[in-house]
Design a protein around this nucleic acid. Sequence first.
DNA 1: TCCGGCGCCGGGACATCCGCCCACGCCCGG
DNA 2: CCGGGCGTGGGCGGATGTCCCGGCGCCGGA
Lengths: 218, 218
Amino acid sequence: MNTVVAVPRVVIVDDQTLFRSGLAKLLEADERICVVGQAADGEAGVELVSRVHPDVVLMDLKMPGLDGVGATRRIATEFPETKILVLTTFDAENHFIQALRAGASGYVLKDSEPDAIVSSILAVVSGERVMATAVANRVLDMLTGTLAPKEFYDGLTPREIEILKLVAEGMANKQIAYRLKISEKTVRNHVSNTYDKLKIVDRSQAVLYAVRKGLVEP
Amino acid sequence: MNTVVAVPRVVIVDDQTLFRSGLAKLLEADERICVVGQAADGEAGVELVSRVHPDVVLMDLKMPGLDGVGATRRIATEFPETKILVLTTFDAENHFIQALRAGASGYVLKDSEPDAIVSSILAVVSGERVMATAVANRVLDMLTGTLAPKEFYDGLTPREIEILKLVAEGMANKQIAYRLKISEKTVRNHVSNTYDKLKIVDRSQAVLYAVRKGLVEP
DNA sequence: TCCGGCGCCGGGACATCCGCCCACGCCCGG
DNA sequence: CCGGGCGTGGGCGGATGTCCCGGCGCCGGA
């Protein structure tokens, strides 16, 4: 007979219907998991959780409408007994920080074996935290001295990152200066220093860098 | 007993392990399909096709290394008896043209029902061409007058699109002028007209527009 | 056939904007 | 205490964006 622990009830939130269906099929084939629902975006995901109260949510990050981070935050606050396991690709570099801060219990990659997903789910329901090795390594790099905590952004100072974000949103130096209540000249200097550190020469390339790093949404 | 037509043998080429596994599970559950292999990138996909000679390849477009378009072209030329069904997301707007020109027999979206995939596979093996309705509508729009072939990019002329791409890659006006063998003034005029049509004022915002539209990779 | 429109090309002049160099305080750690 | 990083600014030259202008080639409608 089974153990004392019930089979964890799981819902899947992902905008790709095919991926959802395939993953559900995959998990249903494993008797240690029970898939009890699917949703195609953040809104529907929150609503679904409020109805079925699952043990674990497999959450994609990039979705139309309410995205994964927002949905994670809402579920984590409104239904704290439900664990959230982020399941996404490894493109946007820093989203996992936002996701974990929003209340996710784990972060695994779509580029991993089905068995890994199952064991991650089981680990999460038992209270563990799960991190994909690639992500974990990055976290360790950021903590240990090899890569200073902020060194992730190629040595940019906080002020420079702040200004780079605004640049990447299409703001002019003058607007940034007004927003930050500093001189336009100062903004230009920060921007210039940023170019130096990133080894770029141009505002456009700064925008591309920021988009790549996930500092802004395109 | 079965019909005279053999069950189509299918291979899946996609870089996301989880998606591959799930889709394989999904298709294996359908007796009309037989999954005979998987590959994680274009190179491996071509090699796999050369070994097993499947009837259909389900091909993702965005992959590391040799991408889907390149793999499609190679398979279509080296193994013309193998049909290729592109299976991708609906982000990059114009990739489907390249894929079809490279020899794909169909273009379906990951955001669709499993049944649709199965019937698309069956249609492709029987010699049909399959297009996702969203894609087909776009093609029709481009052919009929409703939406001029180019009108998708907010009325930008071909030249303007060409220059916008270079702008979004971080090139300066002078460099673009040299590349296109025209005057810098002309480039500035094209850029200015582009701003006008897109209702933007700034180079940075042009980059963001181009990234959003998939004109350039971030 | 002619003509008007449009895309593409280029010029001039002007007002900014941008990127770069230099400099000044401030604070903190060696 | 002092060297260095950080945030702040001024000045300058080049790049960028805008508004004019004209010319050429092509196409479709009158």
